[in-house]
């Protein structure tokens, strides 16, 4: 495997923030570490980047042990949440800073810097100051600055969290495009499920310092391995009697008889409609249907619902 993390533990004082983290990653893969704030995902990334020392365990990249290599000597580049752009340098000087340590001549560096700027559609920005750039532009400069040193592994720490909604969506596509173009192994930390689902090849779901589940988006969504996975990823109805669950969009709702429930809430969302149905005793189910003209019901209407309860498959 390209990257292997084994038995990684990180303590801050007497507090353990990462417990026994094990995972591997293939070359060219885009891996997302997903989890709520405080789950240790950024700390894990900082451990890989060399900004935190390990309390235990190992990190191997392409067969080489990294844990005792300082950040500046690791073939790993990090883009931080706040970008960490150098406020006292121009865009171009930011971009080519890393080449200083790669024995690249200044002339060659500037040429490569221009190429990167072109690729990131930042032509004409080279002499601007960082403060003159918009959030999205800063994001791209930070990305370009890391890409130019051709790292073996790229780390992105919540790179989109400082951008507004619309930009977030277009930037994440851009990141995916660039990542594929460079074919560079990338770890992308986020707390946003949609973001992770949209671009990651594989997702590591974390909960309070531990890996809760690993897999593709489909695997995690369709087969949650813990009640945390279930609760954190998507919406779900947990059935009081059996402890099974069902996703709102997996419930069929019709007006056939005999009826077995009644609508107690209706929310019109535009592309979808969400119903809450009183079903059996003390059991309410949320149901999501497409707003396609079929299956539209009124509040308090009696309906018939049908579904297949799912079990959480613990490993």
């Amino acid at each position: 495997m390209f990257l292997t993390v084994e038995q990684l533990r990180k303590d801050f004082g007497s507090k353990t923030v990462l417990h026994d983290i094990n995972f591997t990653m293939a070359e060219g893969e885009l891996l997302s570490i997903l989890g709520p704030s405080g789950c240790g995902k950024s700390t894990l990334l900082r451990c890989i980047g060399g900004f935190e020392s390990l309390s235990n365990g190992s990190i191997k990249l392409d067969g080489e042990e990294l844990s005792s290599v300082p950040a500046e000597d690791r073939p790993v580049a990090t883009v931080f949440q706040t970008y960490g752009l150098f406020p006292h340098m121009t865009v171009l000087n930011n971009i080519i800073y890393g080449l200083k340590f790669k024995q690249v001549s200044k002339k060659e560096a500037i040429e490569r810097g221009r190429d990167i700027l072109k690729l990131l559609e930042l032509e004409g920005y080279q002499h601007k100051r960082i403060q003159e750039l918009s959030g999205g532009e800063q994001q791209r400069v930070a990305l370009g600055r890391s890409l130019i040193v051709k790292p073996q592994l790229l780390l992105l720490d919540e790179p989109l969290s400082n951008l507004d909604e619309r930009l977030r969506v277009s930037m994440r596509e851009e990141i995916k495009k660039i990542q594929q173009k460079f074919n560079i192994a990338t770890i992308f930390v986020t707390h946003d499920q949609e973001e992770a689902f949209a671009i990651a090849d594989r997702i590591i779901l974390m909960e309070s310092g531990r890996i809760s589940q690993m897999g593709t988006a489909e695997e995690i969504y369709n087969h949650p391995a813990s009640s945390f996975s279930l609760a954190f990823i998507g919406q779900s109805n947990v059935l009081e009697t059996s402890g099974c669950y069902v996703r709102p969009e997996k419930i069929k709702i019709t007006n056939q008889t005999p009826v077995n429930g009644s609508i107690v809430r209706k929310q019109f969302k535009g592309d979808t409609i969400e119903y809450r149905v009183a079903y059996e005793e003390n059991q309410f189910l949320d149901i999501l249907v497409l707003n396609n003209g079929e299956n539209e019901f009124e509040l308090y209407e009696e309906v018939y619902i049908e579904f297949e309860p799912q079990k959480i498959r613990r490993r």
Binding site: F51, P70, E72, T78, G84, F86, Y97, S146
Partner: peptide, 23 residues
């Protein structure tokens, strides 16, 4: 000083000397 500025420099290969001089 934003710590991520220093860490970015490190991440790009700057050793202590360079961090002092350039950052």
């Amino acid at each position: 000083i934003d710590v991520s500025v220093i860490e970015s420099a490190q991440s790009l290969g700057a050793k202590t000397n360079a961090v002092i001089k350039d950052m």
